[in-house]
Structures are given as structure tokens and as C-alpha cells.
């Protein structure tokens, strides 16, 4: 093969590699910051969210990071961040774009959104955007539901890999290692698929100032649930929110001997 021909061949393979679009959709949720200790409202109607710092759900940050790494590795071609909720979710989308997502979609509503409703909104967006993979956080740290990714997979009729600690995409398949009770398991699945992230998948980067600035110029589209013809009415009514029983501090023992004595004779647990 002459050098010119080799060059042509090289270009061709590069182009054919590029022509395979692999889009990743990453849903991100705006939640109370990880470090905030929430307070239950005195009237039992919920928790007090006034003047509380809000951030991207930590597991969603891991999801964005994973998608961006797949793009940087040349596996994915586009990363689209999606958030469902109030107008301020734009900030969460900008954070995702500062990490490296290419664009954002906000499904804007002031209504209370429960996981099934979010899964339906995401399904509507998946029908439109046709992603190859959706990477979600496994659970949001506000409602601790751990449902949305699995529900989306069900609605799409796609396979799912929850609690992922390793993700590889190749030849139209995803190979995912999952954190399960008692250890790890590795699944292989057809694409498209839904993956949900566990904490050991990666360590999300800090967005740099230039990337934060760049993110402000990336496209952000806003739609309403009605535009997607989705009924987001909640199925669960919250009757009340209360504070859990407080555990009071016990005693500081002087030494190991006293500790063993208390465990044996006072608590009678050993």
C-alpha cells in the first residue's frame, strides 16, 4: 500500500469511526447540598428548604463525569444533560455542561415531580433524542427513592444495569460491573440501555473556571411537561413529615476494662 493510499485508508477509518453517533443522555437533579443537615418544618408539612444551598445530586455528578469520560475516550459523540424541575435547574444543567456535557434540556415545571413522572418525561425525551445510553445517578439524596433509572428502562423496554462501578461500551453492547450485596457482578447487555451509577464508578472532576465560562454559552433548551404530553400528577400524597426519634449521647468510659464491664453487665449484649 502506497503512503497516499494508507493515508486515505486512515482517513476513511477515522471518518467511519466518527460517523457512528453515540449519544449519552444524563438526567441531573437539583437537590439540597450533601453537607446541609435539613430541618423538618414545625407544621410537619415537609423540610425547610428556604435559603438552603442546592447542588447537583452527587450520584448524577458521577453520571455526568462518566459520560464525559466516554466522550473524551472517543466512545461517545455527544453528551446531553437533562433536568426536570423548577427554573433554577438551569444552574444544575450549567454545572453539567461545565463538567463537559455538550448541551442541556430543561423540562420546566413547578409541580412536585415523583420518580414515575420523571421517568415518563425522560422517556418522551429519549423518543425524541434517541440516545444509545442513559446514565443516571442511582438515587437522589433528597427523596432517597432509587427508582427513576429502572423505571425509565422499563418504559423504554431497555435493559438496565443499576449500581454500576465500571462501564464499557463496545460493539453495540454495554459491559457493566455492578455493586451488589455481597460483592460484584458483571452483566453484558444490548444497547440502548440505562445505567445507574454507584459511588466507586469514578471521582468527578472539579469544573475549572474557563469551563464554567464556556458552559454559559452552550445551548440550553427549555420545554414544558405539556409539550411532551406527559401527565406528571403525583401518585403518592405526603400526609406528614416528622423528625425521627433522637438518640441521646451516652457515657464516655474511662478505659477498655470499663467498656467491657458495661457491655457485659449494663447493656448485656456480649
Amino acid at each position: 500500500m502506497g503512503s497516499q493510499a494508507r493515508l486515505e485508508k486512515h482517513k476513511e477509518s477515522k471518518n467511519s469511526h466518527r460517523s457512528i453517533a453515540l449519544k449519552i443522555l444524563v438526567p441531573v437533579k437539583r437537590v439540597v447540598d450533601y453537607n446541609v443537615k435539613v430541618r423538618v418544618k414545625a407544621d410537619g408539612s415537609g423540610v425547610d428548604l428556604a435559603n438552603v444551598k442546592m447542588s447537583m445530586n452527587p450520584f448524577d455528578e458521577i453520571a455526568v463525569e462518566e459520560a464525559v469520560r466516554l466522550k473524551e475516550a472517543g466512545v461517545a459523540t455527544e453528551v446531553v444533560a437533562v433536568s426536570c424541575g423548577v427554573a433554577q435547574c438551569q444552574e444544575t444543567l450549567r454545572t453539567a455542561m461545565a463538567i463537559g456535557a455538550d448541551r442541556g434540556i430543561l423540562v420546566e415545571t413547578d409541580a412536585e415531580l415523583q420518580p414515575l413522572a420523571v421517568a415518563k418525561l425522560l422517556k418522551a425525551l429519549c423518543d425524541k433524542e434517541q440516545p444509545t445510553v442513559v446514565i443516571c445517578g442511582k438515587q437522589a439524596i433528597d427523596d432517597d427513592a432509587n427508582q427513576t433509572g429502572q423505571m425509565l428502562a422499563a418504559l423504554m423496554g431497555w435493559p438496565q444495569a443499576t449500581f454500576a462501578s465500571k462501564v464499557a461500551l463496545a460493539d453495540g453492547k454495554a459491559t457493566v460491573t455492578r455493586e451488589i450485596d455481597g460483592g460484584l457482578e458483571t452483566l453484558e447487555m444490548n444497547l440502548p440501555a440505562v445505567v445507574t451509577t454507584d459511588l466507586r464508578l469514578n471521582e468527578p472532576r472539579y469544573a475549572t473556571l474557563p469551563n464554567i465560562m464556556k458552559a454559559k454559552k452552550k445551548p440550553l433548551e427549555t420545554v414544558k411537561p405539556a409539550d411532551l404530553s406527559i401527565d406528571v400528577a403525583p401518585r403518592l400524597a405526603t400526609i406528614k413529615v416528622s423528625e425521627p426519634a433522637k438518640r441521646s449521647a451516652g457515657v464516655i468510659v474511662a478505659d477498655v476494662a470499663q467498656l467491657v464491664e458495661k457491655l457485659k453487665n449494663e447493656a448485656k449484649v456480649i
Binding site: K37, R235, T238
Partner: peptide, 15 residues
Amino acid sequence: PIYAGNALATVKSAD
């Protein structure tokens, strides 16, 4: 429990 167990929600299902 919600919020890492810092609050307890009583929920009623209509399904």
C-alpha cells in the same frame, strides 16, 4: 425515611 433518615415521610398511595 427521606434525606438520609433526617426526616420521616408518611405517604399515602392512590394506586
